[in-house]
Computed example of a mutant assay.
Amino acid sequence: MAVRRTLFLGLLLSLAACSGSEQGTAGEDEARPASRLPADNVFSGQVRALEKAEGLEQTLREAEQRQRRQIEQQTR
């Protein structure tokens, strides 16, 4: 039991040591826009795909709104 406690405390201390002051809190990371990420990170491909999908979603919403307005105008 004492060995587990010692290992657990060692793990906690090593994790605490890894979190440096140059990293922000979770709230700061979420508030940062995706475009400020370095271009050479491991997730850059996924970030670009997500941004592209968000752009496509916005385009589809705009097209849907135009189509709804046309339908409303035709039914009047």
Rank of each mutant, 00 (worst) to 15 (best):
S14C: 13
Q73W: 04
R76K: 08
S35R: 01
R48D: 14
G20I: 06
V47F: 01
L50Y: 10
F8E: 13
R66F: 07
E62S: 10
F43D: 10
E72F: 01
D40I: 04
E28K: 11
N41C: 04
E64D: 14
Q67D: 15
A34P: 00
L37D: 07
V47D: 03
C18Y: 06
R76H: 06
R36F: 05
R36H: 06
E64N: 06
D40K: 02
Q58E: 15
L50K: 05
Q67A: 12
E57I: 09
Q74N: 10
Q70L: 07
E57M: 05
R4F: 02
D29Q: 10
D40L: 02
L60I: 14
G24M: 10
Q65H: 07
L60F: 13
E51D: 13
I71S: 02
I71A: 07
T25V: 09
S21Y: 07
E30Y: 15
T75F: 00
S14I: 15
R68C: 03
E51N: 08
V47Y: 01
E57G: 01
E72K: 01
E22S: 02
D40E: 05
T25P: 00
L13H: 03
E72V: 03
L50T: 12
R69C: 01
A34K: 01
A31K: 11
P33Y: 02
S14L: 13
E22H: 03
D29W: 13
S21A: 09
L50I: 13
A49F: 08
S14G: 09
G20A: 09
A2W: 07
G55D: 15
R32K: 05
G45M: 08
L11E: 11
A17T: 12
L60M: 13
L13P: 03
L60V: 15
E51P: 00
R48Y: 12
A53H: 10
L7Y: 04
L37Y: 06
T6K: 01
S19A: 12
Q58H: 11
L7D: 06
Q73R: 04
V42F: 05
R69L: 09
A17K: 02
Q74H: 05
